[in-house]
């Protein structure tokens, strides 16, 4: 089993939100809400202002809390790629997964069922995901989690997640 994931570099992200659009367009037929979102935070007052843009979708956690929180066992984790997906035939749209998710990834689609990033299910593995392909500054990189780990000087997922399983990689602590 291998675990694929996203690596995101906040220092490279310029907040252009192209990843959101690429995600929407690629997953057009199944997506009814934005699976990928760029959260932008501003802090401070003139002239000392700081900000950060964080592009987030489902992180396909190694130990997915949403999977454990689902009362219908509608969320499954793929053995081969580690992608976490929602089975819409089982989902009842109760949003407990969102309550459990550390990243706020699952969202209620217009059909009343939860939707989330499928790691571009219909793209063969080994090529770039839609969001990675579009990113003008290459702030998003996807791949096997072991390969991604070398980009990151410090894995901050432990600080944000319930456990430090190597399933998730997030952020890049400064120089």
């Amino acid at each position: 089993m291998s675990q694929y994931g996203f690596y995101f570099d906040k220092e490279k992200c310029v907040g252009c939100r192209a990843c959101e659009i690429a995600c929407q367009i690629w997953n057009d037929s199944v997506q009814t809400v934005k699976w990928r979102n760029v959260a932008m935070t501003f802090e401070g007052s003139y002239p000392d202002v700081s900000n950060v843009n964080v592009s987030m979708a489902c992180m396909h956690c190694g130990d997915a809390p949403c999977k454990k929180a689902c009362p219908r066992q509608a969320i499954t984790k793929d053995d081969e790629t580690g992608r976490v997906t929602v089975n819409r035939e089982l989902c009842v749209g109760c949003m407990l997964c969102l309550w459990a998710c550390p990243f706020g990834a699952p969202q209620l689609g217009i059909h009343g069922r939860m939707e989330k990033c499928t790691f571009c299910e219909d793209r063969p593995m080994g090529i770039k995901r839609a969001c990675e392909e579009i990113c003008p500054t290459q702030a998003i990189v996807t791949g096997k989690i072991e390969d991604l780990a070398k980009f990151s000087k410090q894995n901050v997922s432990g600080r944000l997640l319930h456990d430090e399983s190597p399933g998730v990689l997030l952020g890049h602590e400064g120089n």
Binding site: E11, P136, T137, Q138
Partner: peptide
């Protein structure tokens, strides 16, 4: 902009 963010990372 790719070159710019890369070179910023390089210092």
């Amino acid at each position: 902009n790719r070159e710019l963010v890369e070179v910023l990372k390089k210092g």
